[in-house]
Design a protein around this nucleic acid. Sequence first.
DNA 1: TAGATTGTTAATCGATTAACAATC
DNA 2: TAGATTGTTAATCGATTAACAATC
Lengths: 213, 213
Amino acid sequence: MSDRNISKQTIRRIPIYLQHLKDLKIKNMTIISAPSVAAELKLNEVQVRKDFAAMSTTHGKPKTGFIINELIINMESFAGYNNTNEAILVGAGSLGKALLSYKGFEIYGLDIVAAFDIDSRLTGTEISGKVIFPLTEINEISNKYNIKIGIITVPANEAQKVCDVLVCSGIMAIWNFAPVHLTVPADILVQNENMAASLAMLSKHLREHIEGK
Amino acid sequence: MSDRNISKQTIRRIPIYLQHLKDLKIKNMTIISAPSVAAELKLNEVQVRKDFAAMSTTHGKPKTGFIINELIINMESFAGYNNTNEAILVGAGSLGKALLSYKGFEIYGLDIVAAFDIDSRLTGTEISGKVIFPLTEINEISNKYNIKIGIITVPANEAQKVCDVLVCSGIMAIWNFAPVHLTVPADILVQNENMAASLAMLSKHLREHIEGK
DNA sequence: TAGATTGTTAATCGATTAACAATC
DNA sequence: TAGATTGTTAATCGATTAACAATC
């Protein structure tokens, strides 16, 4: 099942589907049709149908729809929410601190176990119960706990350097919050969380709106 | 210039270009070619050429390239970093608090001036000097300061309700951190910051990596 | 002139949406 | 049977990449 070809965009829609399907389950519903989900989430009908077909182990039934429980289980498995993923975070500046103290990642199976920073005034201190270590200990700690996810929250000009260290210490996936392109070996995933890009979209819209009047 | 058709993806690349161009400027360079930027940022050569051509007011010169200063000014204007955008934030939970105390948005021209929460234990308190008001005052405050950007950091099942309130009070662009689709009038922009989607991509990659062995 | 770089048209790619037959 | 819904093929769309002539 895991090697079915599911598009990136479908994977990205999983959290939104799950949100909705779990709501339905709480209301004691057991079956749901793709068109009704599409209407509720304001998505295209065919898109939802295709997404469901791609991720459901059994076929949907014409005229009735898909089994909610099964969709939930399959989607959670595709998104990997059922296995806990431990991560380390590099860069305990204001964004790093924010992520360390954010509780919301738990429901997605992410657990940040340690943080690292170059600033010796920060190392040794704790944020939300997570100790900040010096950068030099990345290798030791990530190996000890067999960490596979690295979160980068350092300034843009440090990001590649940190990225290289993470890759060397066996990290397989990087969540990058710095607004730079990171170069990594082919089997490592870089997932960019580009807030600067979102801000650019927001202010472009505002500029056009104001000029348009 | 502002109504040239620039693709969404080009806008999203602006922060990365700016980062690099400003670095070059600090090194006292005045001219740069698209291929050299492409090589440095690991982007496709044609993509950079097209992006530059779309955003530069004057043409690039064959054999030499583009004027760095001009690119910077034009890109900043497209991304709207030169005008300060004031925003309000709704939902002072852990993610909301994190964003309130994050200093990094300033360089992109974003200024969060107030926060709102439904929880009466939070209202009246301050986070990083920003007062938290009750939800009922959104309309009054956003009108008073003519706020155009709303940031939503409430739980998914509250997000649409909050969104409606923001739209009613004259907000033109919404930065949505809740993993739901928001329905808004056609002239309002919703920019989704879907961290759950990123986490889904990360764990899918890890699962495949582990299964692949 | 030779060669690097720009600007632009055409080909390709991934994803979305439309159309429609198959099914319960 | 009639009609809603699934599954799937074809058309469309936006963005990326390849190819190549124009320019300095």
